[in-house]
Write a protein that binds this DNA or RNA. Structure first.
Length: 654
RNA sequence: GCCGACGUAGCUCAGAUGGUAGAGCACCCGAUUUGUAAUCGGGCGGUCGCGAGUUCGAUCCUCGCCGUCGGCUCCA
């Protein structure tokens, strides 16, 4: 007998193997109608899987977020059911629920077209209407092989069970049977609000050496409004897309002549420079900025380990002299554009004798870096081949690690704070591909973790996700589309000091190895700007806005005055533009709103006489403020100086 | 890199079973001098991504290339 404890504290004894639906039904028939699945000691199972252990028994209805994953997983089966009806020859891969929906992978002769998706979606609605129960069966390995004898992908999956005592189960909804551990909703009619979203290729088992399957992505919800909200949100996200806004606001462009490398327009360059000036200012006190070469001989990369581990991602450069000395074409590619700044910094640190008193020593560099990303990975400003980092390397004594990590964390978090961004911390440990001994890794991981814990901030673990030279703390920031971007990073490195023979002279007058910390705040300027564009929906706070104020004379009579006012703002260091085009005021205001200029100042005869301006705040409509020119100037100046998050980007998103 | 979709004027997009293309906006000119999200009229503007093939004829069909976009385990 199994003992189940209900949420109200009551207990029930049921026989081993009882179906949850019988238990739920005995609690109440209405509850059975609302039940999607149950949780036993927090473990989700469906209503048709026999109970094998007792514990806290909870019924999940559509209000429970855990039930949504069950619905979506069933959605994947319904998708496969429909595809199998339309294309009986399709072999079926995996079809899990994912964070915001579900997908299913198929092996088909012809990839799916958008029209196919419509047809499949219509077929799914039929399957839903036919209301097939999900029937669970538990089978032996041999029986399973029988059932899936014509499906090579499932047979391969079955091999994983060889020698395992895991229960093999199948689920059948009408004509379709899938190898599946569940859980599932009771029948296909539960899938009411769903939409197929896209089709794309996906390697079988994520392995690029294996065949490519065709994946269909979809999403589903219990409530119609939730599905509609999701689709609306996807539309809104498109409008905020930095690639769309970058064009609309004239910030940057790409040319086929330089894939993965952006051209920054005058406005975009202004934005970039503002950001760079900001971080320079922040780093003025405690950091030393240096500029280093972009191109190096392979000797440096051999020393750093990049030549062995990272060569595929580097842009190699042909050396004429090497070729003339008879080296092969391959060997003559003996130089490389730098993909990272670290080796340059180490080289420079190594060049001088350092006292323990100088440490920690922090070098920062904003140079251009190149990484040869595969063409399919390129995407807007977020995945590029040429970019710049606010890259810092700290050289310090081992006893300074805790203090330095705290210093850097505070620095990074307060930086994000300026933009109204919040970050989550992740601690990443040694990856499979790495350099350095296990002892060194033990020391590095322990030291970094201790430093992280001493700050008392919450963090998540990312096992095996460290850099090839050391463990790291990553700072993930969420953007408006809900994507988490890894921006900042603090990486501990015991290997580089060895490879570059770095030393400092200790109090004891003997040579010691320093430790290196790699630190980036923005990740890359390109990607950070992309995130800022999406975060603010292009409606930048006044301190960041390429154009801070647009001054609009109502008629030619006052354009002279408007120009004077503009000059005054510019003399104060503000980015002001006078729009005295002969178009109507309405036209010019519309243009300013579309370009998301934070403030417009309208000048007419009244204002000229009183030395005032009529301010229009971005997104606030015709609600205007009449203030003196000097007061307005002081306000803009102050908002810029304090890097205020004003004016709000509310209402400027569309 | 791989799978798929896409590439028409500066931008957003129409278009023809293969007979060399259109709109709006932007831009230029003229009129209008405007009080808070598009004044009116006129004009300029395209080797229909690039290259080859099929054809009397290709922007449309075929092949190759370039680029952009969606994706390429959140494991039955």
């Amino acid at each position: 007998m199994l003992v189940l404890t209900l949420p109200d504290g009551a207990t029930r004894e049921v026989a081993y193997g009882t179906l949850p639906r019988d238990v739920v039904g005995s609690i109440g028939p209405r509850l059975l109608l609302a039940a999607i699945a149950v949780a036993v000691d927090g473990e989700i199972q469906d209503l048709m899987t026999p109970l094998r252990k007792g514990g806290a028994f909870q019924v999940l209805t559509d209000k429970d977020p855990r039930a949504l994953a069950v619905l979506r997983h069933s959605g994947a089966h319904i998708l496969a059911t429909a595809v199998r009806r339309l294309r009986p020859e399709a072999a079926i891969g995996f079809g899990p629920a994912i964070d915001d929906g579900f997908y299913y992978d198929f092996q088909v002769a012809k990839p799916f077209t958008p029209e196919d998706l419509e047809q499949i979606e219509a077929e799914m609605r039929k399957v839903v209407a036919e209301k097939y129960p999900f029937v669970r069966a538990e089978v032996s390995q041999k029986e399973a092989k029988q059932v899936f004898s014509d499906d090579p992908l499932k047979l391969e999956r079955l091999e994983d069970f060889e020698g395992s005592d895991e229960i093999i189960s199948t689920y059948t909804d009408g004509p379709f049977t899938d190898l599946c551990r569940g859980p599932h909703v009771p029948d296909t009619s539960y899938l009411k609000h769903f939409k197929l979203l896209s089709a794309a290729g996906a390697y079988w088992r994520g392995d690029e050496k294996r065949q490519m399957l065709q994946r269909i992505y979809a999403t589903a919800f219990f409530k119609k409004e939730e599905l509609e909200a999701r689709l609306f949100q996807m539309e809104e996200a498109k409008k905020r897309d930095h690639r769309v806004l970058g064009k609309q606001l004239d910030l940057f462009q790409f040319f086929p002549h330089a894939p993965g490398a952006a051209f920054w327009t005058p406005k975009g360059t202004q934005l970039w420079n503002t950001l760079e000036a900001f971080i320079r200012e922040r780093q003025r006190e405690d950091f030393l900025e240096i500029k280093t070469p972009l191109l190096y001989t392979k000797k440096l990369w051999e020393q750093s380990g990049h030549w062995g581990k990272y060569k595929d991602n580097m842009f190699l450069v042909w050396d004429k002299e090497e070729a003339e000395q008879g080296s092969s074409p391959e060997e003559s590619l003996s130089m490389s554009l730098k993909p990272m700044n670290c080796p340059s910094h180490h080289l420079y640190f190594h060049a001088d004798k350092h006292s323990y008193r100088e440490l920690p020593k922090r070098f920062v560099t904003f140079d251009v870096l190149h990484r040869n990303e595969i063409s399919g990975a390129l995407s807007g400003l977020t995945r590029v081949r040429q970019f710049s980092q606010d890259d810092c390397h700290v050289y310090l004594r081992e006893d300074q690690i805790a203090g330095e990590v705290k210093f850097l964390m505070d620095f990074i978090l307060s930086y994000y704070d300026t933009f109204g961004l919040t970050a989550r911390l992740k601690f990443a440990t040694r990856p499979e591909q790495r350099i350095g001994s296990d002892e060194l890794w033990d020391r590095a991981e322990n030291a970094l973790r201790a430093a992280l814990e001493s700050t008392g901030r919450p963090y998540e673990m990312k096992e095996g996700d460290g850099a090839f030279y050391g463990p790291k703390i990553d700072f993930d920031v969420m953007d408006s589309i809900g994507r988490a971007w890894q921006l900042g990073t603090i990486q501990l490195d015991y290997n580089a000091p060895e490879r570059f023979d770095l030393e400092y002279t200790g109090e004891d007058n003997a040579a010691h190895r320093p430790v290196v910390i790699h630190r980036a705040v923005s990740g890359s300027f390109e990607r950070f700007l992309a995130i800022l564009i999406e975060h603010f929906a292009g409606a930048f706070p006044v301190w960041l806005a390429p154009e801070q104020v647009r001054i609009l004379p109502i008629s030619d009579d006052v354009s002279g005055y408007a120009k004077e006012v503009t000059a005054k703002f510019r003399a104060a260091g503000l980015r002001a533009v006078c729009d005295d085009r002969s178009d109507t005021l309405n036209y010019r205001i519309r243009d300013g709103e579309i370009m998301k200029v934070p403030y417009m100042a309208v000048l007419g005869k009244r204002e000229m006489e009183t030395g005032q301006v009529a301010i229009r705040v971005r997104g606030a409509g015709k609600k205007q403020e009449i203030v003196s020119v000097d007061a307005f100037l002081a306000r803009l100046f102050e908002e810029t100086r304090t890097r205020a998050l004003t004016p709000s980007s509310e209402g400027a998103a569309s």
